[in-house]
């Protein structure tokens, strides 16, 4: 695929800290190769800013291969940019045209406060997992792996849910800043697998309670989360969470 060079107009959210109001700042960037990833483009911008004596734009990123879930960014109003099934680090500049204005904002949700520029605090997700997103099995307690049979097709459903990378795009894209796709992915994975069954009632009730406590919105089944999800987690897991919730509401023993 041939290489082209783009000139871009970047409108980037700058915010010096959690208590700063923040505002957009516009930067011109020229000679952007279409082979660059979006984050490499931001690297180039930052090099330019450093050369000019301006503090570089802070943004979260780590693995840059689409699995760690650390990168975020609302790019022209779309979580992780215009492509489906893609994280920002996998988005390449060939998706943009010469002369484009690109607006870059942080994830917006009360539960994800902005720390600086494009960096937000997603520790709410960790607290939701701590509330019940696990199987309580101490190291050393496990029976032989093959003593727990999981039909291949069930296993695939569990894996579909387990593929969630915890990036928060579902929250960012949802008009209600709901975390249902994230929470349901874990509830669903462990509800499908026999290993998760002993704790299924407590798990869904506790995780939902924590989700609410963190201040996420409610699900209106718009499916925008599914469209934005880089791991293609399906809203069918939200339905399973709802089933689990109904079931647990009626049957939970405490």
């Amino acid at each position: 695929m041939s290489n082209h060079l783009l000139n871009l107009n970047l409108r980037v959210w700058r915010q010096s800290g959690p208590n700063d109001g923040g505002s957009f700042k516009t930067y011109q960037l020229s000679g952007v190769s279409t082979h660059m990833s979006f984050l490499e483009m931001l690297d180039v911008l930052n090099e330019q800013l450093i050369a000019q004596g301006e503090e570089p734009v802070a943004f979260d990123h780590d693995c840059r291969e689409g699995i760690c879930g650390m990168c975020s960014l609302m790019i022209n109003g779309q979580a992780h940019g215009p492509d489906n099934a893609t994280t920002t680090c996998q988005l390449h500049m060939r998706r943009f045209n010469d002369g484009d204005t690109v607006t870059i904002e942080p994830w917006r949700a009360s539960a994800f406060p902005v720390l600086r520029d494009l960096v937000v605090d997603r520790s709410a997700f960790d607290r939701i997992i701590a509330a019940g997103g696990f199987v309580s099995v101490n190291t050393g307690n496990a029976p032989d792996g093959n003593s727990i049979l999981v039909p291949g097709v069930r296993q695939e459903v569990a894996m579909d849910a387990a593929a969630c990378i915890g990036c928060g795009a579902c929250v960012a894209a949802c008009k209600n800043a709901s975390a249902m796709l994230f929470v349901s992915a874990k509830v669903s994975q462990l509800a499908v697998l026999p290993q998760g069954h002993p704790e299924r009632n407590a798990r869904v009730l506790n995780m939902v309670a924590q989700m609410d406590k963190e201040g996420f919105g409610s699900c209106t089944n718009t499916s925008e989360c599914e469209a934005a999800c880089p791991a293609e987690v399906s809203v069918s897991h939200i339905a399973r969470l709802n089933r689990e919730y109904l079931r647990a509401s009626i049957l939970a023993e405490n």
Binding site: N76, P82, T103, R108, A109, S110, N176, S178, G217, A227
Partner: peptide, 21 residues
Amino acid sequence: STGALNKVARGKDYFIKETKQ
């Protein structure tokens, strides 16, 4: 009530918001 809660959950709104659907 859920509508109000959802407004609060978003907090500051996006400058641009597009769908991916």
